[in-house]
Amino acid sequence: MTVAAGIGYALIALGPSLSLFVAVISKKPFLILTVLSSTLLWLISLIVLSGIWRAFLPLKSTTWWPFALLIISSVGFQEGLRVLFWKVYKRLEDTLDAFADRVGKPRLFLTDKMQIALAGGLGHGVAHAVFFCLSLLTPAFGPATFYVDRCPQMPFFLISAIIALAFVTIHTFSMVIAFNGYAEGNTTDQYFVPVVHLVAGMVTLVNFASGGCVVGIPLLYILASLILLHCGKMVWRRLTAS
């Protein structure tokens, strides 16, 4: 039973990304490589951040503002990294196009570009879920569970799985939006993504209040669906336009 629970938590957090991976990514080796490298990039960013914050840890869990600082710095760093990722990707795209010309194949289609962006986002999202949720899940396979004081409604593992799912969604699709925004030079999209990311991070601060997760998680899901909706509309617009 406990093994079932553990697998269940893992699937809540990563199930959608798993199906996305199987359906879209796994058929194209290049996309798998993109996912891997983007995951690695995210891991490196996390390590750098934790290296910076290591000196101040552990933070007192009574005051909330150090955590706010932590989130702001982290989101800022990661958004900077996204710009870097975009630059690398841009170069890669040129290389691929040049190569396609040489072997006499068509250049990258619009869908190809979007798939690469999706793979990059999925890498970020999966890394997030893996490190923030899955890696803490080991005790969930054992014979007990764990509740945190601030949110007695659900087991801790379930909460973290649910939050991780929201963040996986946000990370995955915000990469598509961001890449498209950069490609089109659309400033709204370029700012939309960091803002949503920051707001999502800030919303988790609501969990700091006792019983706050009842409010925080729905808010988070509203943000996630906002991203999904925006991404869907944008892709639809691009596809119908071309």
Partner: peptide
């Protein structure tokens, strides 16, 4: 480095 950071934030239900 990473473990205390991640465990510290996650047990406070903070993510980003």
């Amino acid at each position: 480095l990473m473990e205390p950071f991640v465990v510290g934030t996650t047990t406070n239900l903070l993510m980003f």
